[in-house]
Design a protein around this nucleic acid. Structure first.
Lengths: 158, 158
DNA sequence: TTGACTGCAAAGCGTTTGCAATAAC
DNA sequence: GTTATTGCAAACGCTTTGCAGTCAA
């Protein structure tokens, strides 16, 4: 994916934005992984190379890169957001609410839905990096058993 | 929807939870509207009746009611969350990213998708109150014109 | 040279927490 | 009377902001 990286840099500079080491680092981290990374992960990793990189720079550049269409923001719900380089074709994420396993799926699966929304409601849906929650194959048979501690507030569950 | 309200209260008390004025107020606000309300809106409205209602009570009870399945949490992305009484059949939301208009649609539209995800990936998707973003009919022809101020950070847009 | 960009520190926002006081059962 | 629930205040985690200094062009 090295080519991709230089393409991304070109997209930046040809549009008149400056190529700073911080921006280059962000782009290379994003293009060298095959998943999505959170702002915090990006900051932590960036600091291994440039210890003084600041979080505001990470956020500001992620916003810029997203606006320029070089990077996609994936909203996993619950305030959890991650970023990934904008690849074609788009893909989506099936996130298991039990074991947190994540399945990447092609956008084809959503083509019918997209068509229906357009036909019935005249709505042009952004089918970019959707995240859907549910239960993966393994957890459907063993959900309660596998359930992690995280949520048990019931005073008397009855 | 008064019947619904008393049903909700029954669900609470029969499970051993106490019926406090704060809880009753939350449930009545939620069952008397036909849309979803944010925690903040609920707090503000609740204070008209009980000026001393505290936000932590609103949050704690919304969490309880959600766990009990009486209320659904709708995640609109970008950290924006709203709550509504859990009705059947479920419905979903098409949110226009331009004019913020919201279209409620039936869950039928998603039945095929749900089946495909199950067949292809063995994934049982939570098809509860999804929110999809995109452009509504009116905004597809006039997006740039209608675009609201909110995002214009480009130093030199070129 | 110059203004786009960075680092820093502080604030913003919605949400969560610990705890003593209160009130539903 | 008991203890689930409340109100309060403080802290949380993530993100955004204003500003003075810096460096890519």
């Amino acid at each position: 994916m090295k080519t991709k990286h230089s393409d991304l840099i070109d997209s930046l500079t040809t549009r008149g934005y400056r190529l700073t080491p911080q921006r280059e680092l962000l782009l290379s981290m994003l293009s060298e992984t095959d998943t999505h990374l959170s702002a915090d992960t990006l900051l932590t990793r960036a600091r291994k190379a440039y210890p003084r990189v600041n979080k505001s720079v990470v956020y500001r550049n992620l916003e810029l890169l997203t606006e320029l269409g070089l990077v996609s923001r994936v909203d996993f719900g619950g305030g959890h957001v991650e970023y990934e380089v904008h690849r074609h074709p788009h893909h989506h994420h099936l996130v298991c609410r039990n074991c947190h396993h994540m399945i990447g799926i092609s956008s084809d699966t959503f083509a019918d839905l997209q068509r229906q929304l357009a036909d019935r409601y005249g709505f042009s849906a952004d089918m970019d990096h959707l995240a859907l929650f549910g239960l993966c194959h393994d957890c459907q048979t063993s959900e309660p058993a596998n359930a992690h501690a995280q949520r048990s507030h019931h005073p008397h569950a009855l």
